[in-house]
Design a protein around this nucleic acid. Structure first.
Lengths: 105, 105
DNA sequence: TTCATATATGAATATATAATCATATATATA
DNA sequence: TATATATATGATTATATATTCATATATGAA
């Protein structure tokens, strides 16, 4: 028997609410935005990202794990390096649009 | 003389970064998502929102202030009631798309 | 196997944030 | 003016989150 906590006609069910909030939360942090913005152009290794954005390696790694869990990025291995690239066209499109929107405001 | 803190070619300037992160932060909280989702259909007073979503009046008021500061909602007065409606088509479009996207995943 | 390099992970900490309570403010009406 | 109703606000608290340091793990080369 399914739980039905949301009986109001114009309210969202919990699962949808969680997914939507998580997606936008991924895009709500400046560091994650900068990382994804870097990945627009091409894939980058963890160290490349850290150097380009002047961030600690562990900071980048933690944030990449966050993005990976939401399937917003993926990676391929090359030796000891992991090259990350984006993995969600819809989210990247939203990000790009909002960046353009913000630049002109 | 303008400050130039971001010398890296593929990085974003601070102002854009702040605007983008704030916009997505507005959409990253379940309560704010539910409020905006309610406003898709029509304007609502603060109490109507609180009742429909089973939230405290002060919770709704605080969140509406947050959304108002970002110009995502506006209001009109009618007696002692304030009727809130959305005020940013771009953001509402993103929200709707992401909700639909999440419902089907 | 040993060493070097790249990345991931866990714990700790500082900060941000959402919800709540109590109360203030504003408007309308008697 | 006095009262009722609707909303806003400030302080508090609990929770979530980002960053950092120290260290573990994994891969490749010598």
């Amino acid at each position: 028997m399914e739980e039905q906590l949301n009986q109001h006609p114009y309210d969202l069910d919990e699962e949808t609410l969680f997914l939507v909030s998580q997606t936008f939360k991924a895009l709500s942090d400046p560091t994650r935005i900068r990382i994804l913005n870097l990945l627009f152009h091409k894939e980058h290794s963890v160290n490349e990202i850290a150097e380009a954005l002047e961030l600690r390696q562990s900071t980048v790694s933690h944030q990449l794990r966050f993005l990976k869990n939401l399937r917003l990025v993926k990676y391929r291995r090359e030796g000891t390096s992991l090259f990350y690239s984006y993995d969600d066209e819809h989210v990247m499109h939203m990000l790009k649009q909002t960046i353009e929107h913000s630049k002109h405001s």
